[in-house]
Simulated scan of single mutants.
Amino acid sequence: MTDNTHNGSLISIGELSRRTGIPVRTIRFYCDEAILASRRTSGGHRMFDPTTAIDQLLQVRRLRALGLGLGPIVDILAGTVPLAQAVTAERSTLDTELAALTWRRAALLAIEHAPPAERATRVQLLATVQDRHRTHDSVVTFWRRMLTPLPPDIFDGFIEMNVPDPDPHHIVAYAELATLITDPALRVVMSRQLWRSDRTRIRHKQALLTGVARACESAAHLLRTNQRPRPGPELDQFVDAHASARGERDTPRFRRQLLTGATDSDHRIHRYWSLTSEVTGTITVGTALHWLYNALTQSVHPDDIPLVTNPFPCPNWDAAQPVSDR
């Protein structure tokens, strides 16, 4: 806009540059981007209100030094976005960038510290998890397909406890876990471990999963105190969940049926839950199911079926067992 009457109270772009230390070309850019208001003389020269323009330019320079983009700065100067909100958004963006850089650095260190003969393989492995969020979503999807009948709150609780969202120290284990879930055979054996039969024979799938989840919670309490697998209320709860879901009763015959074709000793299941325990540092559902499986074998064949050695890293309830799974 043109002002021929009040130019005496305004300053030129050169004077504004001298007072703020900001180059003339930068001030012109801010004017063109509507970040800074100016007036035009009849000759077309830009003029500025010294108080307003200096304050705005200094604010822009400070915010730019903190890394804020011009868009948020315009909103702050216009009063449409509070300063605190803009700063919080910028900090959140920075957190995301730092997490990505930390993850990338961990991958590079893992390759650097690998034995020379293993580096090429490790490069191939770690390349699969560089998009950390997509990898995590893949693991969630793996379980969502298997646990579809679960209510959202129970499923979310399972995800929180049993689906790793690891720190960089566990990037190699996490990469191997992410590779494991791409094997269709893992889903088959894991599903068999969970459902214990053809799913079409189960009348109440949600009730079964809910009951098994409760039984695993009970078993986890014993695992925390390193108690060896044994028949008891935890196992009864587990068997009752399966029996009720099929419209049957808990009998010796039914318990034998639960062991028919059991996949609990499958090396892929063991490896998956070992990696999960390594990353999460918690007692997983897999650990609890393994404990319940060994308790079930005792309740059916206490003298004929040996305990299967605990394949998971915590807790070591089977440290003294002489018999291992083959």
Score class of each variant (00 low, 15 high):
Arg91Trp: 04
Ser12Pro: 11
Thr96His: 03
Ala37Gln: 15
Leu180Asn: 13
Asp167Ser: 09
Thr225Pro: 03
Ser274Tyr: 01
Ser218His: 06
Asp264Ser: 06
Ile283Glu: 02
Arg39Gly: 03
Val300Glu: 04
Lys205Glu: 13
Pro168Ile: 09
Val189Phe: 04
Gly261Leu: 03
His45Gly: 08
Cys216Met: 03
Pro311Val: 01
Gly43Ala: 13
Arg256Gly: 12
Val81Trp: 13
Ile305Met: 13
Ala178Asp: 00
Ile202Leu: 04
Leu36Ser: 00
Leu66Ile: 06
Thr2Cys: 15
Val24Pro: 02
Glu217Ala: 12
Ile111Trp: 00
Thr287Val: 15
Leu209Val: 14
Gly157Val: 05
His136Phe: 04
Pro149Arg: 08
Trp273Gly: 01
Asp55Phe: 04
Gly71Pro: 05
Asp165His: 06
Leu180Cys: 14
Val123Gly: 11
Pro82Glu: 05
Ala110Leu: 10
Arg18Ser: 12
Arg253Trp: 12
Gly67Asn: 03
Thr128Trp: 01
Phe48Ile: 00
Gln124Leu: 15
Pro233Val: 02
Thr200Val: 15
Pro306Arg: 06
Gln56Met: 03
Thr297Ser: 07
Leu177Asp: 00
Glu118Lys: 14
Ser12Gln: 11
Phe48Cys: 00
Gly286Asn: 15
Pro311Tyr: 00
Ser138Lys: 06
Leu180Val: 11
Asp304Pro: 09
Thr93Met: 05
His6Thr: 13
Asn7Pro: 04
Arg224Ala: 15
Ile154Ser: 14
Gly79Asn: 04
Ile54Met: 02
Leu16Met: 11
Gly43Met: 10
